[in-house]
């Protein structure tokens, strides 16, 4: 990605820690992010890889403005908005898929009118058919993730932050979801993409950040970073087997 494009979102020396209990960690403080600096350029697709619990979700939450850093600054370009897409945006099991989709769309910033106009598309894309009118508690896991993915897909914001939403549904729906996602990602949309599916990250992202224990350990070309990351995982597995 050319660095001449304008910066949409910039993090400078961002640390985030919070109080847990008196007897653990560093005097009861848990450090999730430590001195993270990064830039997000207009129109690029940035991938974030890393093992569980290294701070990926927290980093997305800081980028989305949900959490404020304990230290450091987050600068968003004027007039831009960011939204975090994750599965299951507060689904209410007793309500129908339609009601849940309406609520989720409105929570993601649509007006009531816009949200209502999305419903037909959501019903069609999610392939839920008559189940769309049934309570979500009767849905299978695959059906709820299909609904969640489709609802999330309808959001239109300047910066899309995507947290692990491609592992949804059966093979057929996953293919469709991926295609829809790729269409968004390859367009002018600025995207930050977190996933355990390293192949997808490599394929879809222009640039990748590798996060380890709240620090950025590598940043750059998606192929180089993802292969270094995959190598480290393999090495880790090998070491574990040896011991």
């Amino acid at each position: 990605m050319s660095k001449t494009k304008p910066i949409v979102l910039e993090l400078t020396d961002v640390s985030l820690s919070f109080h847990v209990s008196k007897k653990s960690f560093d005097h009861g403080r848990h450090h999730v992010l430590q001195d993270v600096s990064m830039q997000l350029y207009d129109g690029e697709t940035l991938g974030i890889v890393g093992r569980n619990g290294v701070g990926k979700t927290t980093l997305l939450r800081v980028l989305a403005g949900i959490l404020a850093p304990t230290k450091g600054t987050v600068r968003m370009a004027h007039g831009k908005s960011a939204s975090l897409l994750t599965l299951g945006l507060g689904f209410k099991p007793d309500l129908s898929g339609r009601d849940n989709a309406l609520l989720a769309a409105m929570l993601q910033g649509s007006s009531r009118k816009q949200a209502l106009s999305f419903l037909a598309d959501i019903k069609e894309f999610s392939e839920l058919g008559d189940s769309f009118e049934q309570p979500v508690k009767n849905y299978s896991a695959g059906m709820s993730s299909r609904l969640a993915f489709t609802t999330a897909l309808m959001t239109h914001v300047d910066v899309l932050l995507i947290d692990e939403i491609l592992s949804v549904g059966d093979a057929h729906f996953r293919g469709k979801a991926l295609a829809a996602m790729e269409a968004r990602v390859t367009g002018e949309q600025t995207v930050v993409f977190v996933s355990h599916m390293v192949d997808q990250v490599e394929k879809m992202c222009d640039r990748v950040i590798w996060l380890e224990n709240g620090n950025i350990v590598a940043e750059g070309d998606s192929k180089e970073v993802t292969s270094a990351y995959t190598e480290s995982i393999t090495r880790l597995r090998r070491d574990k087997i040896k011991h």
């Binding site: 209410k92 099991p93 007793d94 309500l95 009601d99 309406l102 609520l103 409105m106 929570l107 910033g109 007006s111 009531r112 309570p135």
Partner: peptide, 25 residues
């Protein structure tokens, strides 16, 4: 979020909670 959107959201969230409650009993 505009004020209108905020008010609509409060209303929708409240009505959805009520509907969820009503279906439970």
């Amino acid at each position: 979020m505009s004020l209108l959107q905020y008010v609509h959201l409060i209303d929708i969230m409240a009505r959805m909670n009520l509907r969820a409650d009503a279906t439970r009993f």
